[in-house]
Design a protein around this nucleic acid. Structure first.
Lengths: 220, 220
DNA sequence: CTCATATCGGTATATAAATATCGATAACAG
DNA sequence: CTGTTATCGATATTTATATACCGATATGAG
């Protein structure tokens, strides 16, 4: 791993805290304790307190944290308040799904360019974003000063697409293809490994089935 | 975590080994060493050997592992050879993308049912799979003996969908909604936390930009 | 047939993460 | 104004993970 690796579970938990806090309605108390968050999310309270300590400095005894401040601190730490432009390559089903998911903007990511090499797609637009010929990746990324690339092309083309993005000045790649991308030292890669997730899930399933059995007595 | 948790990084690495091994062409040697895999994937060779030891028992000194056997063992461990049926709920963009991604079948997952509550979608079919009214989730899952559920609905509906799936006998949930699902002890949940991934990526990006600067001198 | 070398597999150490323990503080009740 | 309780934050312990080390084994060269 070239760029400094940050703890994945930590980010997962921080995101969960943020989701939980945001979902609380306005009539809830202004303050919230680490213990409350911990029990709500089925976590250890010390973990929560330690995690929060790394992003915020509020925290008063007996009271807890000010909810609004905590949300702001989490959002800041997670980069949600600092939007960056991104380019997506590969306007297949997954690509379209990501292009259509405007919610990413709440997480600090704005997809401003879409590329594909299929002539039938070039010129069309998905969710208001025009699809441009993949040949122009490097050029356009550089012109638009884009530093984040999202790869949703088939495996076989992932590396060449990645190279084009890097050539265009991209410094962080979100890779949905199950490939091992080779990048220069100053480029970060985050693999979205669906296959691994799936394997974990099915392993847990198998485990659960052997442990608890298949047929639950349910009044159904 | 109710169901026994398995090490996420381990699964990630195993998936990477498998991808790498599969991508090797037929004219490569029959055997491969842990060291070779390690260097190819930029990992420590001991990690690779240890990981492999937990899924396979081949391994001869001086030779390495038999490639075909290793692939088979990895696939077996990752459950790719043991297909399970799954139901997907929420035929939006992401849902459609997953439904259209036939490649999951290579990973041991076959989506056999799709649900949505939108009347315009019900009755239509996506990639050969008919969309059924969400009201029938529990019933149909039980009839088809489905044990895996995939949730791609908006946040607000995730919990009720999850409850319906569990009522239908689902024992493993792949959750794409950024919510904290409450499930019985015998049900496994794998959250696909895109927001967390994004946060990690942008953090790495920020890190890289401060460390290496924005403007690389490139002959472009 | 013997020696050098590549590689495996087990044991040992180092690092990082999760969990437990404890004192300090601040609100509230009496 | 004093005692009780909830909560934070710091330190310590346990656990898990990653890395390093070393002997055993099998191949191929001389």
């Amino acid at each position: 791993m070239s760029v400094s690796s940050v703890s994945v579970p930590l980010y997962n938990r921080l995101t969960r805290y943020l989701n939980y806090l945001k979902q609380l309605t306005a009539d809830e108390p202004v303050n919230i304790s680490a213990t409350a968050i911990a029990t709500a999310l089925a976590l250890n309270d010390v973990v929560v307190r330690k995690d929060i300590a790394s992003v915020s400095d509020g925290g008063k005894s007996k009271i807890g944290y000010v909810r609004a401040e905590l949300i702001a601190d989490l959002e800041h730490f997670l980069g949600h308040d600092n939007q960056s432009d991104a380019a997506l390559v590969g306007v297949g089903n997954l690509g379209k799904a990501l292009l259509s998911y405007d919610n990413f903007e709440n997480y600090g990511l704005k997809i401003v360019a879409a590329f594909d090499r299929n002539p039938d797609l070039i010129g069309q637009s998905v969710n208001g974003k025009a699809v441009v010929d993949s040949a122009k990746i490097a050029n356009l990324c550089r012109r638009l000063n884009i530093h984040i690339g999202i790869i949703t092309v088939p495996n076989a083309f992932a590396q060449e697409v990645c190279d084009a993005l890097v050539k265009g000045g991209v410094r962080a790649v979100w890779n949905f293809a199950p490939t091992n991308l080779k990048v220069p030292e100053n480029v970060a890669v985050k693999n979205e490994d669906m296959a691994a997730s799936l394997a974990i899930l099915t392993a847990q399933l198998a485990d659960s089935l052997t442990k608890y059995g298949v047929n639950e007595e349910e009044d159904y």
